[in-house]
Simulated scan of single mutants.
Amino acid sequence: MRRRIFRNLKPLTLASQSPRRKELLANLGLVFSVEPAKINEPPPESETPKHYALKLARLKANEVASQVKEGVVLAADTIVVYQDEILGKPQNEEDAFRMLELLSGNKHEVFTAYIIQEKSAILAENVVKTEVFFKKLTQEEIKAYLATDEPWDKAGAYAIQGLASYMVKCINGSVTNVIGLPLTEVIEDLLRLKVITYEK
């Protein structure tokens, strides 16, 4: 049996249905329940990408924290930004193709905002940015990737931990942030707040 690094001091609820976030936390041996937030995500207005991601994370945290009886809630939202345009989850194949053409051969940013909340009190909030550099993609490559059905529930229409990993030339920053949860910062906050501790 694999040893764990951390153990819980308080119940932890992940306010997300993302399998990537669940896997990131589970790989560290954390015990948590999953309560996906049921919100209608408002479209971006005049706020910066950083503040938009934070707004969505706050909405998710508030919705789930109002229902959880004990412990803390961890909510997060990840957005992909190319030249100030927020690239959400693609609406259809044409939209996904357009996004990947934009990212092809270029640098873009990935922002993940996360909130740690207990009842109505926000205990920690943060936004982490990672720069991602894509190789130049041919139209044939993009079409072949779209045929895998991997892009459909991913911001920016790609998954760095999946089949799109070969498209990424390099990154500047946290890879787990691009996957959906900046583990270094999240774990530091959970330790500081005494939600988790090191396994003895």
Rank of each mutant, 00 (worst) to 15 (best):
E150P: 07
N8Y: 03
M167G: 12
A65E: 12
A157E: 10
L163Y: 11
I116Q: 05
Q91Y: 13
L12M: 02
S33N: 06
V168Q: 10
P42K: 15
E109N: 11
I116F: 06
L123I: 08
P11A: 04
K69I: 01
K154C: 07
T112A: 13
W152R: 14
E199I: 01
K119A: 14
E47I: 06
A61I: 09
I171R: 09
G156R: 07
E188G: 10
V195F: 05
N126I: 02
M99D: 13
A147H: 06
K119V: 05
V178M: 05
P19R: 01
Q161C: 03
I116R: 01
E109M: 03
K10L: 10
S120T: 14
V195I: 15
R21M: 05
G29Q: 03
L28A: 01
L24E: 00
E70H: 03
I79M: 10
T197R: 11
L102D: 05
V81Q: 09
R2C: 02
M167Y: 14
L9S: 01
F32Q: 01
V110F: 06
S18F: 00
L59M: 14
A157H: 07
K55V: 05
F111P: 02
T197S: 12
T130F: 05
L193D: 06
V168R: 14
L123D: 11
S104G: 10
E199M: 09
Q83W: 05
R20N: 00
E94G: 08
A164E: 00
L14A: 04
Y166E: 12
L12E: 04
A96I: 14
K89M: 09
A57L: 04
L30V: 03
A124P: 01
L193M: 10
A159R: 00
N27G: 07
V110S: 02
H108T: 09
K60Q: 03
N27I: 00
E185K: 14
F97D: 11
I39G: 03
E188Q: 15
T13Y: 12
G88W: 07
K55D: 05
S66L: 06
A65F: 08
E101T: 15
P36W: 01
L103W: 08
L87C: 14
T184M: 06
F32S: 00
A26N: 04
V73I: 09
L12G: 05
K69E: 11
E185W: 06
A121Y: 10
S18L: 01
K169M: 12
M167W: 15
V178Y: 01
Q139R: 12
L12V: 00
E131L: 13
I122Q: 03
R21V: 06
D189T: 07
P90Y: 15
R4Y: 02
K22P: 05
M99F: 15
V34I: 13
T184N: 12
K10D: 00
I160E: 09
L24N: 01
W152N: 14
E23C: 01
K50R: 13
N172E: 10
I187L: 15
E70A: 08
A121E: 15
A57T: 02
P182E: 10
T112M: 10
R98N: 15
S66K: 14
Y145H: 07
N177R: 12
L14V: 07
V178D: 02
